[in-house]
């Protein structure tokens, strides 16, 4: 082994000390987390796993006290952390959002349905570590739009249903007027026959031709309508299906709106509540500290 200089020894000891400090810091971090888990101190766990979010939301700090290095240690156990935290969180959410029905899709993964009614909509997923809903954007926008339309005294699909109903009425009228058309056609055919039999004087020829042309085009227009009437039955059946689909969606959203109004008073309050969910939940954890919710592990 080569001779080691005192400076090098000094450096070596210095770096060992540095590393010890770093590792000790990590051990301390993990030890604190372990203690928090053992003590069922979910609030502390939230603070430890995402300091940035915690200080931002709870302390309203401009600069978060992120401990990114230590938090990265947990990268391969986030599913387990989520799973653990989900238990208290879900019982809180079930109270706060009684109309959301959660369903586990994997370790620490949850999706939720809106409502307990027939064919309720899958409404999003739950981000347990962030204490936030990831709403299905399309479904959420429909709900939001339905609340906006309330002022116009309309449901989400009112206009569309009205348009389809109007079309259906027209089609039905076309079907209903079949007998009338048959009569008209018969009359025109008689007239054409008469024209063909009449003796035509040379100076009347063009007038007669014009007359005949007019009758022929009337007849073809009526035949066109007959064809449309033939297809009308099928179209009406399809429209009925469309209307059912739209009415069903309106009914679903109607229940969703009722649920939100019953719990939050308005959609705005609901949105505000969603925004402050993390803060509200941590506050709830602080308020219930010492009261262990889940007795047995």
């Amino acid at each position: 082994m080569a001779e080691v200089s005192p400076v090098e020894i000094e450096q070596f000891q210095q770096s060992a000390k540095e590393l010890q400090k770093k590792v000790s810091n990590k051990i301390r971090y993990l030890q604190t987390l372990l203690n928090a888990v053992q003590a069922h101190d979910d609030r502390l766990i939230y603070q430890l796993i995402d300091g940035e979010n915690y200080s931002h939301q709870i302390m309203q700090a401009k600069h978060g006290t992120a401990d990114a290095g230590n938090e990265r240690l947990l990268n391969d156990v986030t599913a387990q952390i989520s799973q653990y935290l989900s238990i208290n969180l879900l019982s809180y959410l079930k109270e706060t959002y009684p109309f959301f029905y959660f369903q586990q899709t994997g370790l620490g993964n949850y999706q939720f349905f809106f409502g307990n009614w027939w064919d309720r909509r899958l409404f999003g997923t739950l981000d347990i570590l962030k204490v936030a809903f990831e709403f299905d954007e399309i479904e959420y926008q429909k709900l939001k739009r339905a609340f906006e339309l309330e002022q116009e005294n309309k449901r989400l699909n009112s206009d569309q249903i009205a348009v389809i109903s109007q079309q259906t009425d027209q089609l039905q009228a076309l079907i209903n007027s079949q007998a009338e058309r048959d009569q008209q056609k018969e009359k025109i055919r008689q007239q054409l026959k008469q024209l063909a039999q009449e003796k035509v004087l040379p100076w009347e020829a063009s007038k007669i031709r014009e007359n005949k042309q007019q009758l022929v085009s009337q007849l073809s227009e009526l035949t066109d309508q007959d064809e449309k009437a033939q297809k009308a039955y099928k179209l009406i059946r399809e429209s009925q299906k469309d209307v059912l689909k739209l009415s069903k969606e309106d009914t679903l959203i109607g229940y969703e709106k009722q649920s939100i109004v019953a719990k939050f008073g308005s959609f705005e309050n609901f949105e505000a509540r969603n925004k402050s969910l993390y803060r509200d939940y941590i506050a709830d954890l602080i308020a219930t500290k010492g009261r262990v919710k889940i007795e047995n592990e």
Binding site: W117, W118, D119, R120, L244, K245, K248, T251, Y255
Partner: peptide
């Protein structure tokens, strides 16, 4: 066909009853 159950869902809502899942 489940559309028939959908019909019940819609018509029940109008009748003041909720068809539940």
């Amino acid at each position: 066909p489940t559309t028939i159950i959908d019909q019940l869902f819609v018509i029940a809502a109008k009748g003041g009853k909720m068809l539940e899942a």
